[in-house]
Amino acid sequence: MNVMIFLLLSIICIGLIFIIHKYFGKEELYFLAIIYAIVALMMSFKTIKIFGIDINASIIFDSGIIFILYYFIRKYKYNESKKLMLSILICMLITSMFLITTSIMIPSLYDEFNFSYQNMVLDNLPTIIIYPLSLLITMSLSSYCFRQLKEEEDYRLIKTILTIIGITFIEVLIFIYFSYAFMIGFKKALIISLNSYLAKVILMIIFTIFLNIIFKVKKVKE
């Protein structure tokens, strides 16, 4: 069941990019990036057990954001990818601010979810602070690397995969390791980080291959 849902979410994540590539345009891709950013931030609050290992749930949609950026750099001008990164960052900051402010409001006596809501947000305060920061660093690094790769002609797919493996390591180190280190200790954080890194690298390699296939599919709307 867990594996099924994980795979379903991964297929939806890359599937939506494919649908937008084929039938829609740039505006809809902006919209999708914003949705993925908010979903990834929310999912980062949960650690899931899948294939017997513990990983952070945000890795699916986090990968989706990086691939939307990759798509933008391949298809549009650099200025557009800068706008996309800025939009994602502002969206993350606003969502974080809303989560924090709403969690400190004095709740109603009848509210059965208040305790869970406060636990979820306030226990994950390091995640809320570190995640937008790590995403900014990852997106900036990815943007630079993808622009360099755009000029490459030989072995572009292999070079892209190697770049992604490196960027994922930096992202996992900054985000997952440090945010969990503050919450559950350095040793446990290391285990989750390594597991998440392994899962994310596999997922990103599959996504890269799919995205390169997607680029070959002819668009309905130019």
Partner: peptide
């Protein structure tokens, strides 16, 4: 998406947040 993730079994790490 958020609710689908809620259905996936939680890890034993960071249990309070996962339960919430």
């Amino acid at each position: 998406f958020i609710n689908l993730t809620g259905v996936i079994s939680r890890s034993e790490y960071n249990l309070v947040s996962n339960l919430a």
